[in-house]
Design a protein around this nucleic acid. Structure first.
Lengths: 248, 248
DNA sequence: TCTATATACTGGTATAGACCGCTAGTCTAC
DNA sequence: GTAGACTAGCGGTCTATACCAGTATATAGA
């Protein structure tokens, strides 16, 4: 594997994904020392500062940790993450060991329905990005998800390929948006006729309906998502904990 | 205010604190465009890369945000963090302004089903207290709840009246048990024939199924509860927050 | 044998310069 | 008047280099 310096993708980003691949494939296991910054910079014929940008981002993602004078190492995976924390679907599925995937049903700038406008706090003349996807797990449909996004330059997402990429990792890489807090409402319902076809279930089958408003690190709402999960294939899990102190 | 290049503190860190001071003192208010990277680098006679390190960290902290081609701006302050809270049904209903109530369907020491034994970590010969209730809200049934309890002297609860009393307030008053942490699983399903009658819904109506394992302040599990909520009358809500660190 | 020093690594900080794509305002030609 | 070209300024990426401080190991001296 190597880097393509002609690619429009930044070099540090290519290196980052290359390193990530070595970790998720368990070629490098937790605790392993990865090649030093100087070694990586020589091997791929790039500047050490570029290597540092890749390693820095992976470190902030909790995938690597550095020790001055010693080296950079693969971090232990976080166990709790799937529960209390905010995950996108891709990451959610990964932590459960299932193969994630999805088919984009729609990706466009739209005028939002009123309930979405209220959630995203946008005025009627503002358009939001709608990303509607059929979510898959192990080759079978598991959920229909409509994700409404609103933040500066959201239209840049129109050219992205969401079939294999996590929305949240894109948001953090290109927009410096980190999902930090969310309000989620979960209820039971019966599938609509459209959902019945997409999810390949029978009429009258139950679905889990999920509505989520997500806030970034600055406290701004950037996402409102509605999803309908096949009840026979999905369980919503949450850990509640009152022992955590409220800051400030 | 200026920077001390002889200080053992890194220059980027000094700049970061200097900029932060301008923001917390509200000299720069939210939405203000701060000086450009090149301007800061000239003003303080430092490299632009050093400026970028300071701005990058403040951006990741959510204090600044950048817009390509435009500039770097002061972000809106973080809103107060809300907690994921752990409430009993009575309190849950109270916070929603509905009159809470319930009819006790069964209160007895029983041998627990296997899934309950596993959750409560009891051996097959140990009996647990089963409290099965029909939960009401505004004179109408809203949920069927089976609550399995296991802790010292649990049999003392046999004489209690649960029609109007919160289980959790009893536990804290008489047993010094404070619900502190819980794992909850939520899924959608269709009502059983028994649930249909109790909840007064039609056959094939959807229900929200909830399973909760609750731990007390010492980390011991004391409760396993299964409930089925009328989908048309109940929405499960949760606030998620990743800004609180999860530690082992 | 044990301690102290030399040295060869590591990541951390900082420099100065370059080019890119994007934004917004201005200016020109129609 | 207005659409399109130009341009100054912005953040984003990348290079090549330098020196610092911490870590581990080998080596020289007591």
């Amino acid at each position: 594997m190597s880097l393509d310096k002609q690619s429009p993708l930044p070099i540090y980003y290519q290196l980052k994904e290359l390193l990530r691949e070595n970790i998720v494939s368990r070629k490098w296991t937790p605790g392993t020392m990865i090649p030093s910054e100087r070694e990586l910079s020589e091997r791929y014929e790039i500047s050490r500062m570029t290597v540092r940008q890749a390693l820095g981002e992976l470190t902030r993602e909790g995938i690597l940790y550095r020790e001055k004078g010693k080296g950079t190492f693969v971090a232990e995976p976080k166990i709790q993450q799937a529960l209390t924390s905010l995950t996108s679907f891709s990451e959610d599925m990964q932590t459960r060991g299932k193969h994630s995937g999805g088919k984009v049903l729609r990706l466009a700038l739209v005028s939002a329905p009123v309930r979405v406008m209220e959630a995203l706090k946008v005025s009627p003349d503002q358009k939001v990005l709608l990303l509607k996807r059929l979510r898959m797990a192990e080759e079978a449909p598991i959920a229909v998800e409509s994700c409404f996004l609103h933040f500066p330059n959201v239209q840049d997402l129109l050219n992205e390929n969401f079939e294999n990429t996590s929305l949240y990792s894109l948001l953090s890489q290109k927009f410096e948006i980190t999902p930090t807090r969310a309000q989620q409402k979960v209820e039971a319902g019966l599938c609509s006729s459209r959902e019945k076809e997409l999810l390949m279930i029978e009429a009258g089958a139950p679905v889990l309906r999920n509505r989520r408003i997500t806030f970034d690190q600055t406290g701004r709402v950037f996402e409102y998502t509605e999803s309908a999960y096949r009840a026979d294939r999905y369980i919503f899990q949450v850990e509640l904990d009152t022992s955590k102190e409220v800051r400030e």
